[in-house]
């Protein structure tokens, strides 16, 4: 893989991690000493994507703003990698008027039509709309594709299976992405399904399925290149499962008492791992590491400052916008 691509992947992973760490900091800052989920500048559930950066970075590297992404309750990494407006996304997480949804949606409900991005808090329910976006692209004669993302837990939900079947039947330009972080909240994959790879399930619907191991961003990049190219050239849908890692709790405040795999987890963090690899290959040096980090911090802190400056919505506005 060429150096520029590798550096781009690294930069994107750093940007995502920097963002998630900043949201983590802001989320907890005013929930102390006693954690109250409804308190603070960012209230409500918060599902962060630290550890899953390789999936978003590797897949979205092949997309343009004309392609669609439907993400999940854990949407930030895909939103950032797909180029959702960082300022307005952050303002939405803070529930402010300049947010993507003017404060109505929150972190699980980010919609940026400029880049065809959306997400949903209902498991697997982001898959079906991606089919329709793909239909629209196809019927309008564009070569855009739709990427539908879920976790591995969602692969046991009806909408997942119906979507695979329909996309295959209609040869839609869709790439189904499954982020296997091994956990659906507290339920491990092994207690959810007997199927060890969702690539096998893809075969059940007559579409190609691929599984990328080791949370490898370059592995994801290579596999996604193929899947996106197939979709773009009219060869139909495929499924890509990535064995990734949930570095933090399911949501913030998750005590994770169920999680017996935590000991080894820090060592599997994809960010230092990839950094080491790139340093070893002479692609990254100390100065670049620092400048990449500084650039990411600037962008993220700027977005947070923007969000904080943006006013809270007028309560009366709650009654607007039910209909167009």
């Amino acid at each position: 893989m060429d150096t520029a691509t590798r550096l781009d992947l690294y930069r994107m992973m750093v940007l995502i991690r920097t963002f998630e760490e900043a949201i983590l900091r802001e989320y907890h800052a005013d929930k102390k000493p006693v954690f109250d989920i409804g308190a603070g500048a960012i209230p409500g559930e918060m599902h962060l994507s630290a550890g899953q950066e390789p999936v978003a970075a590797g897949v979205c590297a092949h997309l343009t703003s004309a392609d669609a992404v439907t993400a999940t309750h854990r949407p930030h990494h895909f939103a950032i990698a797909h180029g959702v407006d960082l300022h307005r996304m952050t303002a939405e997480i803070f529930g402010r008027v300049d947010g993507l949804g003017k404060g109505r949606g929150g972190h699980m409900h980010l919609f940026d039509p400029d880049v065809h991005f959306s997400c949903s808090g209902i498991i697997a329910e982001g898959y079906p709309p991606a089919l329709g976006q793909a239909m629209a692209f196809q019927r309008r004669g564009t070569d855009s594709v739709a990427v539908a993302v879920t976790g591995e837990g969602a692969a046991n939900q009806g909408a997942f299976h119906e979507s695979l079947n329909l996309a295959a039947l209609w040869q839609l330009p869709v790439v189904f992405v499954v982020e296997d972080n091994e956990w659906g909240i507290s339920v491990p994959r092994s207690a959810s399904t007997c199927v060890t790879s969702n690539a096998d399930r893809a075969a059940g619907y007559g579409i190609p399925g691929l599984r990328v191991e080791d949370n490898s961003v370059e592995g994801v990049h290579r596999a996604a290149a193929e899947a996106v190219a197939r979709a773009r050239t009219g060869e139909g849908p495929s499924l890509l499962e990535v064995h990734t890692l949930r570095l933090w709790g399911h949501f913030e405040g998750d005590p994770q008492g169920y999680r017996h795999d935590l000991d080894g987890v820090p060592g599997r963090d994809p960010l230092p791992t990839y950094e080491q690899e790139l340093r070893g290959d002479g692609v990254l040096d100390e100065a670049t590491v620092k400048s990449v980090a500084a650039e990411a911090a600037d962008r993220v802190e700027d977005a947070i400052a923007f969000a904080r400056r943006s006013p809270a919505p007028d309560p009366k506005a709650a009654f607007d916008l039910v209909f167009a």
């Binding site: 409500g44 404060g103 109505r104 919505p313």
Partner: peptide
């Protein structure tokens, strides 16, 4: 009122 429940605290309190 017949609106989805909004996220921001002030909006949610209003409904």
């Amino acid at each position: 009122p017949d609106v989805p429940i909004p996220y921001a605290r002030g909006l949610e309190d209003a409904v």
